[in-house]
């Protein structure tokens, strides 16, 4: 299984990379997030390729996909769906909203009101939606990739910590490296390739991979290491409160997916170190701005010994 998943992963990454040039690390992380069954938050400036990444992933995995542009006047019903009276049937007919897709791209999630944010976040947590007294199952798998713009915060509703916690990972794309950028500038618009992008994985394969993620071995000493890392975040004077046990579980799940993508059926410390920052940075309340959390995580990884 692990060999096969490695090949599939390579194929997906290659396809996504053809659209989003030079962002292999982010793509791998995003894919690991999806393998681990978690939702992804991409936070970066406009024009860095957030939407492109989401669209390319959706296409390469072959999930049904919608994009919702979040605005301040968006209502929960706009994303969940509404019941419309059908005169012919003399009954209410439910028209599912954009959430009833396997992959939802929630663009600029912090622009909408907390009410709508909660509707989305409930769906993310439960995998189901309650509308008009009726619980409706969302499709399986169900992923949300949300983006938000860290700048121009006026008129936005920043997500509170408890809701940030629902996202398994938070990624920042950053500027492409010079070579990738030259390639990007000299070639055709990569977005044109989006339409041609073929899926690299079947739903059955995806399901198998997700099952395999849970089979990846985690040894006792690795659990000890992770526990020491978590303890470090909790006992530090720079941080008011450290990573929660739920955060710890998220780290382990992501590390499993990461190991599987590397073709291993066991997790090594390097797996944890690779995904620790994306999984934990948005869960740490650090003073000292956005870089505070990243610096702190780097410090934790450097000081906690693996054995």
């Amino acid at each position: 299984m692990s060999k096969q998943s490695q090949e599939i992963t390579a194929a997906i990454i290659e396809r996504v990379e053809s659209v989003l040039v030079g962002k292999q690390d982010s793509v791998r992380l995003a894919l690991a997030c999806l393998y681990a069954g978690g939702h992804l938050l991409i936070e970066d400036l406009p024009g860095m390729g957030k939407t492109t990444l989401a669209q390319a992933l959706a296409a390469a995995i072959g999930l049904s996909y919608t994009r919702v542009q979040f605005t301040s006047d968006l209502l929960p019903a706009d994303i969940i769906g509404v019941s419309v009276y059908d005169r012919n049937k003399a009954a209410f007919d439910f028209h599912p909203g954009p959430l009833f897709n396997q992959l939802v791209l929630a663009d600029e999630i912090n622009r909408t009101t907390p009410k709508t944010q909660s509707a989305l976040l409930e769906a993310m947590a439960e995998g189901q939606i309650s509308v008009e007294g009726e619980t409706r199952q969302l499709p399986h798998p169900f992923y949300v990739i949300a983006t938000q713009n860290p700048l121009s915060q006026s008129g936005t509703f920043p997500l509170p910590e408890s809701q940030l916690d629902r996202f398994l990972m938070r990624l920042r794309l950053g500027y492409p490296d010079p070579e990738a950028e030259r390639q990007l500038l000299s070639g055709a618009d990569p977005r044109l390739k989006l339409a041609e992008l073929k899926r690299g994985i079947t739903p059955a394969q995806l399901e198998a991979i997700q099952a395999a993620v849970n089979q990846v071995k985690v040894s006792g000493s690795l659990v000890d290491y992770l526990q020491r890392l978590l303890q470090f975040t909790r006992s530090s004077a720079d941080i008011e409160y450290g990573i929660s046990p739920r955060g710890g579980i998220a780290v382990l799940k992501s590390a499993r997916a990461w190991a599987l993508m590397a073709g291993r059926d066991y997790v090594i410390p390097e797996d944890i170190q690779a995904i620790f920052a994306p999984v934990c940075a948005h869960r740490l309340p650090v003073s000292g701005g956005e870089h505070g959390a990243d610096n702190f995580i780097q410090q934790a990884l450097n000081s906690v010994d693996i054995i």
């Binding site: 090594i268 410390p269 390097e270 170190q273 990884l301 450097n302 000081s303 906690v304 010994d305 693996i306």
Partner: peptide
């Protein structure tokens, strides 16, 4: 070996 450096690294 640096503290926190995994075997593979």
């Amino acid at each position: 070996r640096k503290p926190g450096e995994g075997p593979r690294d």
